[in-house]
Design a protein around this nucleic acid. Structure first.
Lengths: 186, 186
DNA sequence: CGCCGAGTTGAACTGAATCAAGAAACGTGG
DNA sequence: CCACGTTTCTTGATTCAGTTCAACTCGGCG
Protein backbone atom coordinates (compact mmCIF):
# COMPACT_ATOMS: atom_id res chain seq x y z
CA UNK A 1 0.00 0.00 0.00
CA UNK A 2 1.29 3.41 -0.90
CA UNK A 3 2.16 6.01 1.66
CA UNK A 4 -0.21 8.46 0.01
CA UNK A 5 -3.09 6.07 0.57
CA UNK A 6 -2.18 5.63 4.19
CA UNK A 7 -2.07 9.37 4.70
CA UNK A 8 -5.37 9.96 2.96
CA UNK A 9 -7.05 7.03 4.70
CA UNK A 10 -6.12 8.42 8.07
CA UNK A 11 -7.62 11.80 7.27
CA UNK A 12 -10.65 12.71 9.34
CA UNK A 13 -11.85 15.52 7.13
CA UNK A 14 -13.20 13.37 4.33
CA UNK A 15 -15.49 10.38 4.00
CA UNK A 16 -14.58 7.04 2.46
CA UNK A 17 -15.89 7.44 -1.07
CA UNK A 18 -14.19 10.80 -1.27
CA UNK A 19 -10.94 9.27 -0.15
CA UNK A 20 -10.98 6.84 -3.02
CA UNK A 21 -11.95 9.52 -5.53
CA UNK A 22 -9.08 11.66 -4.30
CA UNK A 23 -6.44 8.95 -4.27
CA UNK A 24 -7.17 8.01 -7.85
CA UNK A 25 -6.53 11.48 -9.15
CA UNK A 26 -2.90 11.61 -8.15
CA UNK A 27 -0.33 10.85 -10.83
CA UNK A 28 2.91 9.20 -10.08
CA UNK A 29 6.19 10.67 -11.28
CA UNK A 30 9.82 10.03 -10.60
CA UNK A 31 12.24 12.86 -9.92
CA UNK A 32 15.81 11.68 -10.27
CA UNK A 33 18.65 12.72 -8.02
CA UNK A 34 19.58 16.32 -8.93
CA UNK A 35 16.80 16.51 -11.46
CA UNK A 36 14.87 19.76 -11.41
CA UNK A 37 11.13 19.26 -11.14
CA UNK A 38 10.22 22.94 -11.20
CA UNK A 39 12.21 25.91 -12.45
CA UNK A 40 11.94 29.55 -11.49
CA UNK A 41 9.47 31.27 -13.77
CA UNK A 42 7.39 28.18 -14.40
CA UNK A 43 3.90 27.77 -13.07
CA UNK A 44 3.43 25.22 -10.36
CA UNK A 45 -0.12 23.96 -10.67
CA UNK A 46 0.47 20.78 -8.74
CA UNK A 47 0.39 19.76 -5.18
CA UNK A 48 3.11 17.17 -4.64
CA UNK A 49 3.15 14.30 -2.23
CA UNK A 50 6.51 12.77 -1.48
CA UNK A 51 6.01 9.03 -1.61
CA UNK A 52 9.65 8.04 -1.30
CA UNK A 53 12.82 10.09 -1.27
CA UNK A 54 13.54 13.72 -0.57
CA UNK A 55 12.82 16.96 -2.41
CA UNK A 56 14.10 20.45 -1.82
CA UNK A 57 12.63 23.84 -2.67
CA UNK A 58 15.03 26.73 -3.00
CA UNK A 59 15.29 30.14 -4.58
CA UNK A 60 18.14 32.28 -5.77
CA UNK A 61 19.20 35.23 -3.68
CA UNK A 62 22.02 37.17 -5.29
CA UNK A 63 23.00 34.13 -7.27
CA UNK A 64 23.10 31.85 -4.27
CA UNK A 65 20.73 29.03 -3.55
CA UNK A 66 18.62 29.47 -0.47
CA UNK A 67 16.77 26.42 0.71
CA UNK A 68 13.41 27.04 2.23
CA UNK A 69 11.72 23.69 2.29
CA UNK A 70 12.67 20.07 2.49
CA UNK A 71 9.93 17.82 1.16
CA UNK A 72 10.22 14.73 3.29
CA UNK A 73 8.47 11.41 2.86
CA UNK A 74 4.79 11.43 3.64
CA UNK A 75 4.30 15.19 3.30
CA UNK A 76 2.73 17.52 0.78
CA UNK A 77 4.78 20.20 -0.87
CA UNK A 78 4.49 22.79 -3.60
CA UNK A 79 5.72 26.19 -4.67
CA UNK A 80 3.50 28.19 -2.38
CA UNK A 81 3.45 31.46 -4.25
CA UNK A 82 2.84 29.86 -7.57
CA UNK A 83 0.38 27.21 -6.52
CA UNK A 84 -1.80 29.38 -4.35
CA UNK A 85 -1.56 32.67 -6.21
CA UNK A 86 -1.16 31.46 -9.75
CA UNK A 87 2.04 33.44 -10.21
CA UNK A 88 5.21 32.16 -11.85
CA UNK A 89 7.30 30.38 -9.27
CA UNK A 90 10.22 32.10 -7.61
CA UNK A 91 11.36 28.74 -6.43
CA UNK A 92 13.04 25.71 -7.81
CA UNK A 93 12.10 22.24 -6.68
CA UNK A 94 14.54 19.41 -7.19
CA UNK A 95 15.31 15.90 -6.08
CA UNK A 96 18.02 15.49 -3.48
CA UNK A 97 17.85 11.79 -4.22
CA UNK A 98 15.77 9.65 -6.58
CA UNK A 99 12.28 10.45 -5.45
CA UNK A 100 8.83 9.09 -6.19
CA UNK A 101 6.17 11.74 -6.03
CA UNK A 102 2.43 11.71 -6.53
CA UNK A 103 0.94 14.93 -7.76
CA UNK A 104 -2.46 16.45 -8.34
CA UNK A 105 -3.29 19.71 -10.07
CA UNK A 106 -5.39 22.40 -8.47
CA UNK A 107 -7.75 22.07 -11.40
CA UNK A 108 -8.37 18.46 -10.50
CA UNK A 109 -8.80 19.34 -6.87
CA UNK A 110 -11.44 21.86 -7.89
CA UNK A 111 -13.14 19.26 -10.05
CA UNK A 112 -13.38 16.62 -7.35
CA UNK A 113 -14.50 19.26 -4.89
CA UNK A 114 -17.69 19.71 -6.87
CA UNK A 115 -18.73 16.13 -6.36
CA UNK A 116 -17.08 15.74 -3.01
CA UNK A 117 -17.34 18.99 -1.07
CA UNK A 118 -15.42 17.64 1.90
CA UNK A 119 -12.30 17.89 -0.24
CA UNK A 120 -12.40 21.61 0.49
CA UNK A 121 -11.85 20.91 4.16
CA UNK A 122 -9.03 18.55 3.39
CA UNK A 123 -7.41 21.06 1.10
CA UNK A 124 -7.73 23.79 3.66
CA UNK A 125 -5.96 21.51 6.10
CA UNK A 126 -3.02 21.15 3.75
CA UNK A 127 -2.87 24.91 3.39
CA UNK A 128 -3.00 25.29 7.12
CA UNK A 129 -0.10 22.91 7.50
CA UNK A 130 1.88 25.15 5.19
CA UNK A 131 0.95 28.17 7.27
CA UNK A 132 2.05 26.40 10.42
CA UNK A 133 5.32 25.40 8.86
CA UNK A 134 6.07 29.01 7.94
CA UNK A 135 5.10 30.25 11.37
CA UNK A 136 7.49 27.81 13.00
CA UNK A 137 10.26 28.88 10.70
CA UNK A 138 9.73 32.48 11.71
CA UNK A 139 9.98 31.61 15.37
CA UNK A 140 13.13 29.61 14.77
CA UNK A 141 14.78 32.42 12.82
CA UNK A 142 13.75 35.08 15.28
CA UNK A 143 14.67 33.43 18.57
CA UNK A 144 16.79 30.39 18.20
CA UNK A 145 20.55 30.33 17.95
CA UNK A 146 22.33 28.39 15.25
CA UNK A 147 22.79 25.53 17.70
CA UNK A 148 19.14 25.42 18.65
CA UNK A 149 17.91 25.55 15.07
CA UNK A 150 20.17 22.69 14.20
CA UNK A 151 18.95 20.70 17.19
CA UNK A 152 15.37 21.38 16.16
CA UNK A 153 15.92 20.12 12.65
CA UNK A 154 17.76 17.10 13.97
CA UNK A 155 14.84 16.31 16.23
CA UNK A 156 12.08 16.88 13.70
CA UNK A 157 13.71 15.82 10.46
CA UNK A 158 16.82 13.76 11.14
CA UNK A 159 16.55 12.25 7.68
CA UNK A 160 17.40 15.62 6.14
CA UNK A 161 20.69 15.74 8.01
CA UNK A 162 21.62 12.35 6.64
CA UNK A 163 20.73 13.04 3.05
CA UNK A 164 21.15 16.72 2.29
CA UNK A 165 24.56 18.37 1.84
CA UNK A 166 25.71 20.95 4.34
CA UNK A 167 25.11 23.82 1.95
CA UNK A 168 21.41 23.04 1.70
CA UNK A 169 20.99 22.65 5.40
CA UNK A 170 22.93 25.79 6.25
CA UNK A 171 20.87 28.04 4.01
CA UNK A 172 17.72 26.43 5.33
CA UNK A 173 18.76 27.20 8.88
CA UNK A 174 19.82 30.70 7.88
CA UNK A 175 23.43 30.24 8.91
CA UNK A 176 26.73 29.95 7.08
CA UNK A 177 28.33 26.70 6.00
CA UNK A 178 31.12 27.20 8.45
CA UNK A 179 28.87 27.79 11.41
CA UNK A 180 26.87 24.68 10.61
CA UNK A 181 30.04 22.67 10.39
CA UNK A 182 31.12 23.89 13.81
CA UNK A 183 27.72 23.35 15.35
CA UNK A 184 27.59 19.88 13.93
CA UNK A 185 30.96 19.07 15.44
CA UNK A 186 29.34 19.94 18.78
CA UNK B 1 -19.32 53.74 2.58
CA UNK B 2 -17.34 51.45 4.79
CA UNK B 3 -13.84 50.35 3.97
CA UNK B 4 -14.91 46.73 4.21
CA UNK B 5 -17.46 47.29 1.49
CA UNK B 6 -14.90 48.93 -0.73
CA UNK B 7 -12.52 46.04 -0.27
CA UNK B 8 -15.17 43.42 -0.95
CA UNK B 9 -16.60 45.32 -3.90
CA UNK B 10 -13.21 45.43 -5.55
CA UNK B 11 -12.77 41.67 -5.23
CA UNK B 12 -12.68 39.80 -8.51
CA UNK B 13 -13.25 36.37 -7.03
CA UNK B 14 -16.91 36.80 -6.24
CA UNK B 15 -20.02 37.96 -8.04
CA UNK B 16 -22.26 40.83 -7.01
CA UNK B 17 -24.98 39.03 -5.11
CA UNK B 18 -22.35 37.12 -3.21
CA UNK B 19 -20.63 40.37 -2.31
CA UNK B 20 -23.76 41.67 -0.68
CA UNK B 21 -24.43 38.41 1.13
CA UNK B 22 -20.91 38.45 2.46
CA UNK B 23 -20.83 42.07 3.55
CA UNK B 24 -24.00 41.67 5.57
CA UNK B 25 -22.59 38.88 7.65
CA UNK B 26 -19.85 40.89 9.24
CA UNK B 27 -20.49 42.29 12.72
CA UNK B 28 -19.07 45.54 13.88
CA UNK B 29 -17.20 45.81 17.15
CA UNK B 30 -15.06 48.41 18.82
CA UNK B 31 -11.76 47.51 20.42
CA UNK B 32 -10.60 50.29 22.70
CA UNK B 33 -7.04 51.45 23.03
CA UNK B 34 -5.16 48.81 25.06
CA UNK B 35 -8.21 46.60 25.22
CA UNK B 36 -7.53 42.93 24.64
CA UNK B 37 -9.72 41.42 21.96
CA UNK B 38 -8.30 37.92 22.19
CA UNK B 39 -6.37 36.25 24.99
CA UNK B 40 -3.96 33.36 24.87
CA UNK B 41 -5.88 30.11 25.36
CA UNK B 42 -9.10 31.41 23.87
CA UNK B 43 -10.44 30.19 20.58
CA UNK B 44 -10.37 32.62 17.73
CA UNK B 45 -13.23 31.72 15.45
CA UNK B 46 -13.41 35.06 13.73
CA UNK B 47 -11.75 36.64 10.80
CA UNK B 48 -11.26 40.33 11.59
CA UNK B 49 -11.27 43.21 9.23
CA UNK B 50 -9.73 46.44 10.48
CA UNK B 51 -12.08 49.19 9.48
CA UNK B 52 -10.37 51.99 11.36
CA UNK B 53 -7.47 52.00 13.77
CA UNK B 54 -4.67 49.57 14.46
CA UNK B 55 -4.50 46.14 16.05
CA UNK B 56 -1.56 44.10 17.17
CA UNK B 57 -1.10 40.36 17.57
CA UNK B 58 1.60 39.19 19.95
CA UNK B 59 2.57 36.20 22.00
CA UNK B 60 4.59 35.69 25.12
CA UNK B 61 8.09 34.32 24.84
CA UNK B 62 9.70 33.86 28.23
CA UNK B 63 7.36 36.41 29.72
CA UNK B 64 8.08 39.00 27.07
CA UNK B 65 5.69 40.21 24.44
CA UNK B 66 6.68 39.42 20.91
CA UNK B 67 4.75 41.21 18.22
CA UNK B 68 4.14 39.26 15.06
CA UNK B 69 1.42 41.11 13.27
CA UNK B 70 0.14 44.62 12.97
CA UNK B 71 -3.44 44.68 11.74
CA UNK B 72 -3.60 47.85 9.69
CA UNK B 73 -6.63 49.54 8.22
CA UNK B 74 -8.19 47.76 5.30
CA UNK B 75 -6.67 44.34 6.01
CA UNK B 76 -7.88 41.04 7.38
CA UNK B 77 -6.34 39.57 10.47
CA UNK B 78 -6.82 36.69 12.87
CA UNK B 79 -5.00 34.33 15.15
CA UNK B 80 -3.72 32.03 12.44
CA UNK B 81 -3.18 28.91 14.50
CA UNK B 82 -6.46 29.16 16.26
CA UNK B 83 -8.62 30.25 13.37
CA UNK B 84 -7.30 27.81 10.81
CA UNK B 85 -6.57 24.83 13.02
CA UNK B 86 -9.23 25.26 15.68
CA UNK B 87 -6.66 25.22 18.46
CA UNK B 88 -6.58 27.58 21.41
CA UNK B 89 -4.74 30.72 20.46
CA UNK B 90 -1.12 31.21 21.42
CA UNK B 91 -1.55 34.83 20.58
CA UNK B 92 -3.11 37.90 22.04
CA UNK B 93 -4.77 40.50 19.89
CA UNK B 94 -5.24 43.99 21.23
CA UNK B 95 -5.99 47.52 20.15
CA UNK B 96 -3.05 49.86 19.83
CA UNK B 97 -5.59 52.64 19.53
CA UNK B 98 -9.39 52.75 19.52
CA UNK B 99 -10.24 50.49 16.62
CA UNK B 100 -13.35 49.60 14.70
CA UNK B 101 -13.34 46.06 13.43
CA UNK B 102 -15.76 44.01 11.45
CA UNK B 103 -15.66 40.31 12.08
CA UNK B 104 -17.13 37.15 10.67
CA UNK B 105 -16.94 33.65 12.12
CA UNK B 106 -15.67 30.70 10.14
CA UNK B 107 -19.03 29.08 10.77
CA UNK B 108 -20.74 31.90 8.94
CA UNK B 109 -18.22 31.75 6.15
CA UNK B 110 -19.02 28.05 5.76
CA UNK B 111 -22.74 28.81 5.75
CA UNK B 112 -22.57 31.44 3.04
CA UNK B 113 -20.26 29.22 1.03
CA UNK B 114 -23.08 26.73 0.60
CA UNK B 115 -25.26 29.24 -1.19
CA UNK B 116 -22.41 31.18 -2.72
CA UNK B 117 -19.62 28.79 -3.65
CA UNK B 118 -17.39 31.57 -4.93
CA UNK B 119 -16.83 32.55 -1.31
CA UNK B 120 -14.44 29.63 -1.15
CA UNK B 121 -12.20 31.30 -3.68
CA UNK B 122 -12.35 34.55 -1.83
CA UNK B 123 -11.52 32.85 1.43
CA UNK B 124 -8.65 31.03 -0.11
CA UNK B 125 -7.32 34.37 -1.28
CA UNK B 126 -7.34 35.70 2.26
CA UNK B 127 -5.47 32.61 3.40
CA UNK B 128 -2.99 33.07 0.62
CA UNK B 129 -2.38 36.64 1.67
CA UNK B 130 -1.53 35.35 5.11
CA UNK B 131 0.87 32.84 3.59
CA UNK B 132 2.54 35.57 1.59
CA UNK B 133 2.86 37.78 4.62
CA UNK B 134 4.60 35.00 6.53
CA UNK B 135 6.90 34.23 3.64
CA UNK B 136 7.98 37.86 3.43
CA UNK B 137 8.64 37.95 7.13
CA UNK B 138 10.89 34.91 6.80
CA UNK B 139 12.88 36.57 4.06
CA UNK B 140 13.22 39.74 6.08
CA UNK B 141 14.40 37.89 9.17
CA UNK B 142 16.78 35.68 7.25
CA UNK B 143 18.49 38.23 5.03
CA UNK B 144 17.84 41.76 5.99
CA UNK B 145 19.78 43.76 8.52
CA UNK B 146 18.06 45.72 11.26
CA UNK B 147 18.34 48.84 9.11
CA UNK B 148 16.79 47.18 6.07
CA UNK B 149 13.93 45.67 8.02
CA UNK B 150 13.13 49.01 9.50
CA UNK B 151 13.24 50.66 6.09
CA UNK B 152 10.92 47.99 4.74
CA UNK B 153 8.36 48.55 7.46
CA UNK B 154 8.64 52.28 7.00
CA UNK B 155 7.98 51.87 3.31
CA UNK B 156 5.12 49.40 3.56
CA UNK B 157 3.45 50.42 6.79
CA UNK B 158 4.54 53.89 7.82
CA UNK B 159 1.42 54.23 9.93
CA UNK B 160 2.73 51.57 12.32
CA UNK B 161 5.83 53.63 13.02
CA UNK B 162 3.67 56.59 13.92
CA UNK B 163 1.27 54.77 16.19
CA UNK B 164 3.00 51.82 17.80
CA UNK B 165 5.53 52.21 20.62
CA UNK B 166 9.14 51.27 20.05
CA UNK B 167 8.83 48.08 22.06
CA UNK B 168 6.17 46.67 19.74
CA UNK B 169 8.06 47.59 16.63
CA UNK B 170 11.37 46.25 17.88
CA UNK B 171 10.00 42.81 18.71
CA UNK B 172 8.19 42.75 15.39
CA UNK B 173 11.43 43.44 13.56
CA UNK B 174 13.25 40.91 15.70
CA UNK B 175 15.71 43.41 17.14
CA UNK B 176 16.28 45.01 20.51
CA UNK B 177 14.78 48.30 21.64
CA UNK B 178 18.16 49.91 21.63
CA UNK B 179 19.05 48.84 18.14
CA UNK B 180 15.76 50.14 16.84
CA UNK B 181 16.37 53.44 18.54
CA UNK B 182 19.78 53.73 16.92
CA UNK B 183 18.53 52.71 13.52
CA UNK B 184 15.72 55.18 13.78
CA UNK B 185 18.20 57.94 14.58
CA UNK B 186 19.83 57.10 11.23
C1' DC C 1 7.42 70.10 41.66
C1' DG C 2 9.32 65.30 41.58
C1' DC C 3 8.18 60.80 40.02
C1' DC C 4 7.62 57.39 36.34
C1' DG C 5 7.59 55.07 31.99
C1' DA C 6 9.25 55.61 27.34
C1' DG C 7 12.98 56.48 24.59
C1' DT C 8 17.98 57.49 23.73
C1' DT C 9 22.93 57.03 24.10
C1' DG C 10 27.33 54.82 25.56
C1' DA C 11 30.61 50.91 26.40
C1' DA C 12 31.64 46.18 26.68
C1' DC C 13 30.63 41.78 25.00
C1' DT C 14 29.26 37.89 21.83
C1' DG C 15 27.37 34.85 18.21
C1' DA C 16 27.90 34.32 13.80
C1' DA C 17 29.81 36.00 9.16
C1' DT C 18 33.62 36.35 6.41
C1' DC C 19 38.01 35.30 4.59
C1' DA C 20 41.48 31.98 4.05
C1' DA C 21 43.59 27.64 4.00
C1' DG C 22 43.74 22.77 4.55
C1' DA C 23 41.50 17.90 4.70
C1' DA C 24 38.27 14.56 3.12
C1' DA C 25 35.10 12.57 -0.21
C1' DC C 26 33.76 11.95 -4.74
C1' DG C 27 33.65 10.53 -9.59
C1' DT C 28 35.67 10.06 -14.01
C1' DG C 29 38.84 8.39 -17.21
C1' DG C 30 42.87 5.79 -17.89
C1' DC D 1 41.52 -0.12 -9.03
C1' DC D 2 44.29 3.76 -8.78
C1' DA D 3 45.44 8.76 -9.85
C1' DC D 4 43.95 13.18 -10.34
C1' DG D 5 41.12 17.11 -10.17
C1' DT D 6 36.96 18.97 -8.34
C1' DT D 7 33.71 19.69 -5.12
C1' DT D 8 32.38 19.43 -0.23
C1' DC D 9 33.52 19.90 4.43
C1' DT D 10 36.29 21.38 8.38
C1' DT D 11 39.22 24.40 11.06
C1' DG D 12 41.38 28.84 12.30
C1' DA D 13 41.72 33.98 12.66
C1' DT D 14 39.55 38.21 12.23
C1' DT D 15 35.66 41.31 11.98
C1' DC D 16 31.08 43.10 12.69
C1' DA D 17 26.14 43.67 13.62
C1' DG D 18 23.47 43.54 17.23
C1' DT D 19 22.74 42.37 22.37
C1' DT D 20 23.13 43.50 27.03
C1' DC D 21 23.65 46.37 30.84
C1' DA D 22 23.71 50.77 32.57
C1' DA D 23 23.23 55.65 32.82
C1' DC D 24 20.91 59.49 31.18
C1' DT D 25 17.01 62.63 28.94
C1' DC D 26 12.50 63.89 28.12
C1' DG D 27 7.53 64.62 28.52
C1' DG D 28 3.35 63.79 30.99
C1' DC D 29 0.84 63.77 35.22
C1' DG D 30 -0.27 63.08 40.22
Amino acid sequence: MSLLKEVIESSKEIDNTTKIALENRFNEQVVKRNEIFLKEGQYCNDLLFVEKGLLRAYYLKEGKEVTDWFGTEGTFMTSIHSFYNGFPSEQYIHGIEDTIIRKISKKKIAEISKEHPSIEKWFRLITTQHLTRLQQRITALQFYTAKERFALLKEKNPVVLQKAPVSHIASYLGISLETLSRVRAR
